[in-house]
């Protein structure tokens, strides 16, 4: 069952990952690979757009935790945008808003990177 998709686009020196579908223990490695390949290319300014994400479990959140330290050590960041309320609740329950920039929309996140 192919239930998760990651697509990538560039906006200046920021990379936007659009994630779509269901992010769980089965599909989390796909996001892990996507983030790892950005890091391998030296891309540390990353926006993840959740607009088309329907579902997330802790395995999905764990992916962001696994990369954030390395990315920030390289003067970068992962900014998360366009979450629906159901997805945001999971992040909120686990206290992620304390640690991550969770923003209303993609453009806002890109602008913040460039400011």
């Amino acid at each position: 069952m192919e239930s998760f998709e990651v697509t990538k686009k560039h906006d200046g020196n920021v990379v936007v990952l659009n994630i779509k579908g269901y992010l769980d223990a089965h599909t989390a490695p796909m996001l892990e690979n996507g983030l790892q390949s950005l890091i391998d290319q030296g891309q540390f300014r990353i926006v993840v757009n959740f607009k088309d994400l329907i579902y997330i479990s802790s395995a999905g959140l764990g992916v962001f935790m696994g990369f954030i330290e390395n990315i920030r050590n390289n003067q970068g960041d992962i900014k998360l945008t366009n979450m629906n309320p159901k997805i945001f609740r999971v992040f909120d329950l686990l206290g992620f808003p304390m640690l991550y920039d969770i923003m209303e929309d993609e453009q806002q996140a890109i602008t913040k990177f460039n400011s």
Binding site: S57, S58, G62, M65, L94, G95, M98, L99
Partner: peptide, 22 residues
């Protein structure tokens, strides 16, 4: 302790916390 997990950026282990919260 979620704050501790986040502070240490530990991967995984949050499932049980979520189950209890939900």
């Amino acid at each position: 302790d979620v704050k501790e997990y986040l502070a240490e950026m530990r991967v995984g282990g949050l499932g049980i916390y979520l189950m209890k919260a939900l």
